[in-house]
Nucleic acid binder design. Structure first.
Length: 569
RNA sequence: GCGCCUGUAGCUCAGUCGGAUAGAGCAACAGCCUUCUAAGCUGUGGGUCGCCCGUUCGAUUCGGGCCAGGCGCGCCA
């Protein structure tokens, strides 16, 4: 198997090699030459290129000399001198300087920068996308119980799952998006009992909903819908028969609502897998048999156990209860075993923080089956707490007093909701202040970014009206883009493919959201300070090309989040 | 008690294998529309990076120990 885990190699397949990558190539070459001349030893070292934080340190910088210095036991600046001496000639490079503690600062020739604009326009929607990595990844997310509507917490995981899947795909992976429907077990029974009670009550036979059942208003609505549709026929059945039938009907309605909410949110899954189907297929018995053969299953206290403590978990876990019922873990092991053998190189699970204690058991399975631990990657989304008027809103699905995802989308809009969830790292807890989001909706970063795109579209419309050509066919003289703001924009565009790869390697789509904000800001400032359409037709053509390229990258990046790129605002 | 996550400007948060003088948005204050869109732009103020040790040329970043908050620790899902 290809080594997918070597940093940097995985996604190194862009059709257009980025300037940053080509800087890395030159540095590789310099190191190679230094070694073959005997000036530097052959000790392994990572060649690393970064973007300096400050003006005046060149366009790219590498701490390579400092890293080498500790291996070579020599002064960093001395090592830097050696690398500089062996630096290969290149028409990309304006100059290489040694700076500070021993950085190599690389300055790119201005005319090399401008080629990026042509690259973006030529690639269009493909700009930023890498060629196939050869890796297939499954991302499983949301996977809420069909026992009620989706809430705000699901909204976060849904938005991030969507973006992560799109990001991995953009970086070259083949990606499948899956929703695992937990439609078996105790929670479904409680749902059925709750619906059964409300159904009877609506038909005049007052029946109490179980204490630990579901009490939300939506339970009433579903019971009502069933009464209207099916009438009183289940009133006369035995409780078992009636409850089973009502569970099935409620399940259908709730799953339909979940699908509709996700659809409304712009989230599409490639695959829906049912827990019940896992049970029915015999997969549970099969995985347990496999584990038993490996000696990881034992009986005690009338129950069947998974010896996960022998595989890194904190303690052993029950697979089949004393009463003969399977636990949730049993089907989950079967489900994951199935995924791991289905040909995915990596299986990603996106879970809420309240499930993090589960990671150890699933990883125990991965080990038991002999897969490398990296095959399974569990990303934990810290919980979203909802606040209204500065006070926390209780969020209990069973009590039914929660804010649904649908409510939020209706209140702040789909695009704003999607992007708001991307503006923080997944492992950072999130406070969702309903009033603040509502009040700030017009100042939400999403509008700032979309406005930049609308401005681009507006300028291009104005150019069209004046008969100015700006596409690749116009063959603009891009060397006319010499303003500091223009070079700054071009550098951002040039870094976009690198960003996609780095964000994908880290499984961190939020990095792209921050990039969007930066690119939009740089364009707003440029737009305000300089006219794009001027009396000078050649200059206008070059600036229009840059503007169109900015619009392309804004649109491509917004698409990763499922956010629209409006032509007008 | 044990485990996972978090602690950075008044607030919400970024900070890319450890790297150069720690950043953005919001809020506050002062300015900018006869121009291709002011949902925008420019500027100002604001920091013991929770605290203490350690590792080293160098720590917001890595390790250890505390402190504070969130979430788990079930034959629930």
């Amino acid at each position: 198997m290809v080594d997918h885990y070597t940093r940097g190699l995985l996604y190194d397949r862009h059709v257009v090699r980025s300037i940053k990558k080509r800087m890395g190539d030159l540095l590789d070459e310099a190191l190679l030459r230094a070694r073959s001349s005997g000036d530097i030893s052959d000790a392994a070292v990572a060649v690393w290129i970064e973007s300096p934080k400050r003006e005046g340190f060149g366009d790219y910088a590498s701490p390579l000399a400092m890293t080498l210095a500790s291996v070579e036991k020599r002064a960093p600046r001395q090592v830097a001198e050696i690398l500089l001496k062996h630096f290969p000639p290149s028409d990309l490079i304006e100059r290489v300087e040694i700076a500070g503690p021993g950085y190599l600062n690389l300055t790119v020739r201005p005319d090399a920068w401008s080629t990026v604009v042509a690259d973006v326009l030529a690639a269009g929607p493909e700009y930023g996308r890498a060629g196939p990595s050869g890796r297939s990844v499954q991302v499983e997310f949301v996977s809420a119980n069909p026992t009620g509507p989706l809430h705000v917490g699901h909204g976060r995981l849904a938005a991030v799952g969507l973006a992560l899947a799109n990001l991995l795909a953009e970086a070259g992976d083949r990606v499948e998006r899956e929703y695992y429907i937990n439609d078996a077990g105790r929670q479904m029974k409680l749902l059925g009992a709750s619906i059964w009670a409300r159904y009877r009550s609506l038909l005049g036979d007052e029946t109490a909903v179980p204490e630990d059942g579901y009490h939300g208003a939506y339970i009433d609505e579903i019971a009502h819908a069933i009464v209207e549709d099916a009438g009183p026929r289940y009133l006369h059945e035995s409780r078992d028969v009636a409850q089973a039938a009502l569970t099935g009907l409620a399940y259908q309605l709730l799953l339909k609502e979940i699908r509709s909410d996700l659809d409304h949110y712009g989230i599409r899954f490639d695959s829906w897998v049912s827990e019940r189907a896992i049970f029915d297929s015999g997969a549970v018995e099969r995985v347990i048999e496999t584990l038993r053969e490996k000696g990881y299953v034992f009986e005690a206290d009338g129950a069947l156990w998974f010896r996960s403590s022998a595989l890194g978990d904190d303690k052993d876990r029950v697979l089949r209860k004393q009463d003969g019922e399977w636990t949730y873990l049993a089907s989950d092991l079967a489900y994951h075993a199935q995924k791991l053998t289905a040909g995915f190189d990596v299986v990603v699970d996106l879970w809420g923080a309240d499930h993090h204690g589960y990671i150890g058991r699933i990883h125990a399975l991965v080990r038991a089956l002999g897969h490398p631990p990296d095959r399974l990657r569990v990303e934990i989304g810290q919980l979203v707490s909802v606040v209204r008027k500065g006070k926390p809103v209780p969020m209990s699905k069973r009590a039914g007093n929660f804010i649904t995802l649908r409510d939020v989308i209706d209140e702040v809009g789909r695009d704003a909701a999607l992007l708001t969830f991307q503006m923080r790292r997944l492992d950072s807890p999130m406070e969702f202040d309903l009033d603040a989001v509502k009040e700030q909706s017009s100042e939400n970063p999403v509008y700032y970014i979309q406005y930049a795109h609308a401005r681009v579209a507006n300028v291009l419309r104005a150019a069209d009206e004046q008969g100015l050509a700006w596409g690749p066919s116009a063959a603009p003289d891009l060397s006319r883009l010499g303003l500091a703001e223009e070079v700054g924009l071009i550098k951002l565009l040039a870094g976009y493919p690198d960003l996609i790869q780095e964000a994908a390697l880290a499984y961190e789509p939020h990095r792209v959201a921050y990039f969007l904000q930066e690119l939009a800001g740089a364009f707003h400032a440029y737009y305000y300070k300089h006219r794009i359409i001027t009396e000078d037709r050649s200059l206008s053509a070059a600036r229009l090309a840059l503007t169109a390229a900015v619009g392309t990258v804004l649109k491509n990046a917004l698409a990763l989040f499922g956010v629209s790129a409006p032509e007008r605002m």
